[in-house]
Simulated assay, not measured.
Amino acid sequence: MLIIRSQQIGNGQIPVSVSDTGKGISPQLAKQIFDPFLTTKPHGTGMGWRICWTIVELHGGRLWVEDAPERGATFQFTLPAAALASR
């Protein structure tokens, strides 16, 4: 199951979180998941999360991942509201 949340907060940032109920993510993988060419799949390129990270950063935001407290993982990112309004 996926849970997607977003809101506009007072500091001009819009946070978005995407949580799942999968097996979670180890602290070691969480530290490396945005590194180029890191893959956990037999035929993966290791570019998917790096591309996501780059897009968010280029728009003035930040992207990170955490192991979810109950079960699964939560990917979160923020984007400046002003950048979204100018599009």
Results as ranks from 00 to 15, higher is better:
L2S: 11
L2T: 03
L2G: 02
L2Q: 08
I3C: 09
R5Y: 03
S6I: 00
S6C: 07
S6K: 09
S6T: 13
Q7K: 13
Q7V: 11
Q8G: 06
N11R: 09
N11I: 11
G12A: 08
G12H: 09
G12M: 11
G12T: 11
G12V: 10
Q13H: 05
Q13I: 11
I14P: 02
I14T: 05
P15Y: 08
P15C: 06
V16H: 02
V16P: 01
S19M: 07
S19Y: 01
S19Q: 15
K23A: 13
K23G: 05
K23V: 11
G24W: 04
S26L: 08
S26A: 12
Q28P: 00
Q28C: 02
Q28R: 13
Q28F: 05
L29W: 05
L29K: 10
L29E: 12
L29I: 12
L29C: 04
K31H: 10
Q32S: 10
Q32D: 07
Q32F: 07
F34S: 06
F34N: 06
D35Y: 04
D35A: 12
T39Q: 00
T39I: 05
T39V: 00
T39M: 03
K41F: 00
P42Y: 01
H43Y: 06
G44T: 03
T45W: 04
G46H: 03
M47E: 10
M47Q: 11
G48W: 05
W49H: 08
W49C: 09
C52W: 02
C52I: 06
T54S: 14
T54V: 13
I55Y: 09
V56M: 08
L58H: 11
L58P: 00
H59G: 08
G60W: 06
G61S: 08
R62L: 09
R62M: 10
R62A: 13
L63C: 10
L63M: 15
L63G: 07
W64A: 06
W64H: 14
V65S: 07
E66W: 06
D67Q: 15
D67H: 14
A68K: 10
A68C: 05
P69C: 00
E70S: 13
E70D: 15
R71S: 12
R71H: 13
R71F: 04
G72D: 07
G72H: 07
G72S: 11
A73R: 15
T74F: 02
T74L: 00
T74R: 14
T78R: 04
L79T: 07
L79V: 14
P80N: 09
A82F: 04
A82V: 13
A82G: 09
L84Q: 08
L84M: 15
A85W: 07
A85D: 12
S86A: 15
S86F: 05
S86I: 13
S86L: 14
